[in-house]
Computed example of a mutant assay.
Amino acid sequence: MEKLQFRRNRRLRNTNALRSMVRETVLRKEDFIYPIFVVEGENVKNPVSSMPGVYQFSLDRLAEEIDEVVELGIPSVILFGVPEEKDAMGTGAYHDHGIVQQGIRFVKERYPELVVIADTCLCEYTDHGHCGVVEGEKVLNDPSLELLARTAVSQAEAGADIIAPSNMMDGFVAAIRQGLDAAGFTDIPIMSYAVKYASAYYGPFREAADSTPQFGDRKTYQMDPANRLEAMREAESDEAEGADFLIVKPALSYLDIIRDVKNNFVLPIVAYNVSGEYAMVKAAAQNGWIDEQQVVLETLTSMKRAGADIIMTYHAKDAARWLEGK
Rank of each mutant, 00 (worst) to 15 (best):
residue 306 A to N: 11
residue 117 I to N: 09
residue 170 D to W: 10
residue 202 Y to V: 09
residue 238 D to L: 00
residue 89 M to Y: 13
residue 201 Y to F: 14
residue 191 M to F: 08
residue 17 A to N: 05
residue 51 M to H: 14
residue 79 L to C: 15
residue 257 I to G: 01
residue 115 V to E: 13
residue 138 K to F: 11
residue 52 P to H: 13
residue 322 W to N: 10
residue 304 K to R: 13
residue 163 I to F: 15
residue 78 I to R: 05
residue 303 M to W: 12
residue 278 Y to V: 05
residue 260 D to K: 05
residue 79 L to I: 14
residue 145 L to S: 03
residue 280 M to C: 00
residue 70 V to Y: 08
residue 295 V to C: 15
residue 222 Q to H: 06
residue 112 P to V: 01
residue 105 R to I: 05
residue 318 D to L: 10
residue 250 P to A: 08
residue 159 G to A: 11
residue 109 E to A: 05
residue 31 D to V: 04
residue 255 L to E: 05
residue 167 N to K: 08
residue 40 E to P: 11
residue 125 Y to K: 01
residue 92 G to R: 04
residue 260 D to H: 04
residue 184 G to A: 09
residue 279 A to I: 08
residue 79 L to T: 13
residue 72 L to G: 09
residue 149 A to M: 09
residue 279 A to W: 09
residue 273 N to E: 06
residue 287 N to L: 10
residue 122 L to Q: 00
residue 290 I to P: 02
residue 45 K to L: 07
residue 106 F to W: 00
residue 270 V to E: 03
residue 308 A to W: 00
residue 259 R to E: 04
residue 253 S to G: 10
residue 122 L to K: 00
residue 128 H to C: 09
residue 106 F to L: 00
residue 72 L to Q: 07
residue 164 A to K: 09
residue 141 N to F: 00
residue 220 T to P: 03
residue 48 V to H: 09
residue 65 E to N: 04
residue 129 G to F: 02
residue 195 V to L: 04
residue 226 A to G: 04
residue 82 V to D: 13
residue 286 Q to Y: 03
residue 178 Q to C: 13
residue 123 C to M: 04
residue 291 D to W: 07
residue 270 V to G: 03
residue 82 V to P: 11
residue 149 A to N: 10
residue 114 L to W: 04
residue 154 S to I: 00
residue 58 S to A: 10
residue 51 M to L: 14
residue 51 M to W: 14
residue 302 S to E: 11
residue 299 T to W: 02
residue 220 T to D: 06
residue 239 E to T: 12
residue 304 K to E: 10
residue 250 P to V: 08
residue 104 I to D: 07
residue 238 D to H: 00
residue 319 A to G: 06
residue 119 D to N: 09
residue 283 A to P: 02
residue 323 L to M: 15
residue 243 A to L: 01
residue 189 P to S: 11
residue 197 Y to V: 12
residue 114 L to V: 02
residue 21 M to G: 05
residue 313 T to E: 07
residue 34 Y to S: 11
residue 164 A to N: 09
residue 5 Q to Y: 11
residue 60 D to T: 03
residue 97 H to Q: 14
residue 195 V to G: 10
residue 169 M to Y: 03
residue 316 A to G: 14
residue 211 S to C: 10
residue 215 F to V: 07
residue 169 M to Q: 08
residue 133 V to M: 12
residue 242 G to P: 12
residue 142 D to H: 15
residue 14 N to F: 14
residue 253 S to Q: 09
residue 22 V to L: 15
residue 187 D to N: 11
residue 263 N to I: 02
residue 283 A to D: 04
residue 278 Y to A: 04
residue 236 E to A: 12
residue 35 P to R: 12
residue 46 N to H: 00
residue 262 K to W: 00
residue 193 Y to W: 10
residue 207 E to A: 01
residue 192 S to F: 07
residue 303 M to C: 15
residue 128 H to P: 07
residue 93 A to Y: 03
residue 285 A to M: 07
residue 257 I to K: 01
residue 311 I to W: 02
residue 250 P to E: 08
residue 143 P to K: 11
residue 11 R to P: 01
residue 289 W to T: 10
residue 296 V to F: 03
